[in-house]
Amino acid sequence: MLSIVLLWSAVYLTGMLLCKISGEKETSQLWIHLAGFFFLFFSQGIVFTAAQLLELSFGQACTYLILILTLAALAGLFAGRKELAALPGKLRQLFGEDKKKKLYFALMCWLWLGIFLVLGTGMVMNRQDALLEIMQTTLETDTINKIHPFTGQPMELGVIFSKRLQTLPFWYAALQTWTGCSAQDTVWVWGSFFTITFSLIAFTELASLLFKRDFQKIWLFVCLMELLILSGDYFTGAAGYRLLFYGYSGETIVGFVGVPSVLIILYRFFAPWFHHQDEAWQEGIKSGFWGAAVQLALVLGTSLFLAPLLWGPVLLLITILLSLICLGAICLVKKFRESNCPRG
């Protein structure tokens, strides 16, 4: 439990560092988490791919990854010290003094726990196991993609690179190594826990825009979302019991965190236009473009590493180039914005 909390803290702090670097003043919890996970998946993709090419053992790759994450977290702790100090006050504002608001907030937390207990720890038999098989093979052999996870036969490196390379199972295996949880617990309990929590954070963010920060409505909305998940199962593409299966290929994150995130970006961008505020619309373009560019880059980057889009080193190279282009575009926009809209 402690190691899970530490890992989450590391992701959060890393996200804070990235948001600081991107220069946004008002950064939401969603973007901090997304940025942290973007960094994590970006670095795990690079570390595991390099480890495979250099024929390092799985354990060695895990050590390098945790080292990178620790350094990033320490930098994040330093960069975001003021925001961290203000966090308890912000959290208190979420439920405030209103009794009804408090009631919905408590109900939301209770349902969230229910989802975790019922879907995460209960119906494990209804889950698909591809991720688990690959994890177990990786851990048993202490190698990366050397043994066919479904048949146990040795694989040639050329076969792997001729098709695609997905590193997410290795990331889960690394989680198991660090936390000491069993493979089943890592995949079924913690995997579903993080996925559901992050998707709820994303939808809460979207709801807070739609309901203009009316927290009574927002918490009611989240309660209903949770009830739908709890009683109707958690479906991405609507097919049942596929949280893990889709979680494996990253579609859960892309579908349930990526899509609402893109909607949030689009809403922020177009909201003044929806409300017929021409001046605000023009101002929105100026001020929103920078944030939107960073956020889109984050979502795109996360999607590229989570979704099954990564076809071997060629696409890895394209991903890196794309990220660099995004970064260049962001710097240009920032420069343009600063020269045209001087602060103060």
Partner: peptide
């Protein structure tokens, strides 16, 4: 089937 994930079904019901 994956196309259905575009609909954000749960979200729209709750909304």
């Amino acid at each position: 089937e994956k196309l259905w994930s575009l609909l954000l079904m749960l979200f729209l019901i709750a909304y």
